[in-house]
Design a protein around this nucleic acid. Structure first.
Lengths: 198, 198
DNA sequence: CATGAAGTGGGACAGTCGACCCAGTCGACC
DNA sequence: GGTCGACTGGGTCGACTGTCCCACTTCATG
């Protein structure tokens, strides 16, 4: 086997771990399953990481960072507030449908982090980041649609994050695309009513 | 040790398993941890259940059934639609705060069910039940507040379920009571705007 | 009181887990 | 070309897992 510097090996293992968690869940993400997915020997694992926990921690931070970029609601097109929000939700929904296992893995990793005191802050940071992103997007949306939020933007952002999470979980369970779209439509409408036209 | 009929032993083991899952997560709910919690020997486990999987299945169905009753939005007091919905959300939030570990266990069990094809239907049935309960409550609320839903009630119900799930997850992560209440307030307001006064 | 089924205890099984060890190999540099 | 440190493969460790087994006790029934 070709020789690979430790740094690359670490990220290769993290990618492999993410694939394993996505496919089979975190419980099945054993050191052996991960190195098999990465095509390495068991020794390489403990050469690159001190422990499985260390890899999981790094996996969580990596994956959260990536999720930010994927979910970040980019350019706000013309249209009223409702349309902007709905297109953002649709964008997320397409992201979810494109790789359901990845979002399921995200949820599992969050809950995994919730179970140990040392890892809990990772989950807190993750959700704080989501809320901040949503807040920023909502402010941009209001500006673009020439509206002002009647409710504090931070609160609207939390509603949006909570709703997005719930939408994810619900869809992962029943995989009902039409229902999810209808729900996103209704939710976008409802959220947009938290602002007044200016 | 006194002799206990198998039926009682099954339910005792299920209760014990629920406590273990709540406290330490489903990954730690080993046969030994469960029997220790129940104060039984390992043999009693496999006398009452054929396998650990069988117990987990029964645990999920039991716990879903119970959750229905706990979350079921009972009597709708006087007040407008927004107030009724918000009080329902508050009621659920108090339920969540009273036993956070239980709700966390519910989420874990759902995700666990999602991971195996045989158990997936359990999760589907669970969410269908939640949606039906929400729908029924929303219809009662509209009647009480003398309003009509502009959006299909089934859709509103799904919005509510998704939002509730998301609220749970968010609060489990950051334990921010004030934020959760503000979010519930805003969400109740938004959802109530999906109906027209009659 | 005998008997057989229901229930119990403790030990054992094979398999898997995370972690580790060490002899060996490779590649860059002197 | 030799040497040193980075890297690798394979084997092994003790702990823990779900499951099973079997001798034993208890109790309702005859």
């Amino acid at each position: 086997m070709t020789r690979i510097p430790a740094a690359e090996r670490r990220s290769a293992l993290i990618e492999a771990a993410l694939r394993v968690v996505s496919r089979h869940g975190i419980a099945q993400a054993t050191t052996r399953a991960i190195v098999a997915e990465a095509g390495m020997s068991l020794a390489s694992f403990h050469y690159a990481f001190d422990s499985r926990d260390e890899l999981i921690d790094e996996l969580i931070t990596t994956v959260v960072e990536r999720e930010q970029q994927a979910v970040i609601p980019d350019v706000v097109p013309g249209g009223d507030l409702r349309e902007i929000i709905e297109s953002g939700l649709h964008r997320y929904f397409e992201h979810l449908k494109a790789d359901p296992e990845h979002e399921q893995a995200m949820l599992e990793l969050t809950q995994y982090a919730l179970r140990s005191p040392e890892r809990h802050p990772l989950a807190v940071a993750q959700y704080a980041r989501y809320a901040a992103l949503a807040e920023q997007a909502l402010e941009a949306a209001a500006t673009s649609a020439d509206a002002t939020w009647r409710v504090p933007v931070a609160t609207v952002a939390r509603v949006l994050v909570a709703f997005t999470d719930g939408l994810t979980l619900t869809w992962l369970v029943d995989r009902d695309d039409d229902a999810a779209r209808a729900v996103a439509h209704a939710a976008a409408d409802a959220v947009s009513r938290m602002a007044d036209a200016r």
